[in-house]
Design a protein around this nucleic acid. Sequence first.
DNA 1: TTGTAGGCGTTATCAA
DNA 2: TTGATAACGCCTACAA
Lengths: 369, 369
Amino acid sequence: MHKRGFRKYLNKKSWDFILKSELTPLITLKMIADEVGVTHSTVSAVLNDRASERRVGKKTQRRVLEVARRLNYQPNYLARGLVGKRTKTIGLIMPSGMYFPQYLLPQEISLLLHKKGYQTYLTTSLHDKEVFLNSLAELSARRVDGVIFFPYHNHYLTPAIRQALRQFPVTVLLAFESIFRDTLQAHLVCVKMDQGAEEMVAHFAQTGRRRPLMVTSVGPSNEAKVKAFKNALERHGYDSSDEAALYGVPPIASNDLDSYTHFLRDFESRKLRDRTFDALFCTCDEGAIAAMNYLKQRGIRVPEDVAVVGLNDMPLIRGFQPSVASISWRHPIACELIVTRLVERLNQTGLEPGCDELPTQFIRRESAG
Amino acid sequence: MHKRGFRKYLNKKSWDFILKSELTPLITLKMIADEVGVTHSTVSAVLNDRASERRVGKKTQRRVLEVARRLNYQPNYLARGLVGKRTKTIGLIMPSGMYFPQYLLPQEISLLLHKKGYQTYLTTSLHDKEVFLNSLAELSARRVDGVIFFPYHNHYLTPAIRQALRQFPVTVLLAFESIFRDTLQAHLVCVKMDQGAEEMVAHFAQTGRRRPLMVTSVGPSNEAKVKAFKNALERHGYDSSDEAALYGVPPIASNDLDSYTHFLRDFESRKLRDRTFDALFCTCDEGAIAAMNYLKQRGIRVPEDVAVVGLNDMPLIRGFQPSVASISWRHPIACELIVTRLVERLNQTGLEPGCDELPTQFIRRESAG
DNA sequence: TTGTAGGCGTTATCAA
DNA sequence: TTGATAACGCCTACAA
């Protein structure tokens, strides 16, 4: 059966298109059935391992398989999804991706999902509720079996969004706080800032720092981190008031600057010099490096005069001089967990919404003293 | 019409599932039609701006729109795709993603595609032909309208893969060399290494360097870069033999190490000290930083004794001391171009395969002298 | 051991 | 101005 043989399966328009464009025609069950000389339902049974159940003859099975392979048959997932079976498709909604390891998560997650037989839609919410809602609608229109997303903060879970999430058989959240569980039928993978913050502040206390300051971009996205930091400060007898412990940097516009430059410019605009501190905790490694360069430029030594700690533990920060301390949230484990939980829930309907807590870890390096 | 009203549209199994799981039922054209009191084809016409063509009454239109919005109707893209219209879905196949800006591309591309009304499947080829072929099959099964992928080298375009690519109405390639065009009906966005390499080597020549050495991971992925470097060396009268100009690092296993550590370990295993050089060109910025740290450790000064240049121009390398020179391939422009070309070809069938060349740029910074 | 028929949610083409 | 009806490709009963 060669290309010409497909003519009868196609209307004129499709056929002309195929001829002209040199496209390979897509094979259907019916084409295979005709070629072998059986019905499409027989072919379907063989190709879906339902052959024995249906008592298809050995010979027929072999021929079907042979023809299917020869013609390079690929089941149409649209049709399959339409009849009600799962689409084997997952939607992944990421906020924006200026920071490591956020921009690694899509690749890692899609790779893990692929191993489990799923394809992944990648979508961006841009930290914008409207965009988020819109993405959910599109994923629902495509009948994904589940969604994974990363809301950062309850703030992004408006009633409309909560409602929209109920369209999906399974949803898994990645977040920095654990309050979402309430009314949402979703599994939560929660990266706990508390542990890392506690370890870091304990280190500050031990090494005699008196004024730790947190540098963070303003907005709800970082609330959990701020809270964890303040709690740790209190436990160790530091002043945890906003005035003493917090330094806000304007949020970075997506696709605008890179975050290193963004933080550096802010520091250089004379704002950081008005503050007193001998330890800095920056909510991203890029910010920590910007801070170190800013301090160096002003003759302030790291770590002797000021300790600096970042967040996210990018591989590259080990290469700086002094090497940069950081808080790691071990994203490979998080990805693994997310995918495992998702697939688990896809296979086993009716599971109660659960929660996995992933403690962060303070990684001490030279910049922290 | 409240939840209970949907009962009649669902078989027992689906209904029980809905009830139990608190899922929002998905609305169909038929449900809207029944609610309004017309046929689904009328509803379809109204909802697809075909109302005037079909002469639907104003009143009917209003009611249809109102009910559709109230019930939060979302067209089923599976069904829509099945009847032959485009799926508004693109497949993106990335190699592996250990390096910047590769891990940024998926986000950037999917965001741009989203703005044009497309959703993006993210898939990984892992630099493995089998995986690649498999990904193509899955994307085809899902009837994507087009694919974008990043093959690095002709080597990855085996006959089987070329054949598989013919299943897709439109394909766009991103690559470092321009030989692909031959038999392939694909548009190519080609990042030309020549220009950046030329500028860099010219700079080496001007500043009196005598032995430039290229540090690159072994494998076909970097062939175009090697060629560009060697050509530039020849043009400037340098020895461009493999022995003189090339230093190979084993390819990094995906999900194994980070590339900074990988390069550093290799350098430290005494292999780099056997070579003579006064200028290093590393095919990734991570490698350049590893080299700088290795040299510093051995008392060799950068850039006085050895000039160091990276590739990719990661934002963070500006923060190093000395700041790291690099070759930039301006990936935002590449992404924009890829998406523009793809959409152009989707809207206008029968375009001849074209090619856009994107010259790279040498970014001089302290490490290059 | 296999074929037939109905349905999934759309769109498109008739006919009324 | 609208309603039937036939595809699209697949799956699943049920019939033979």
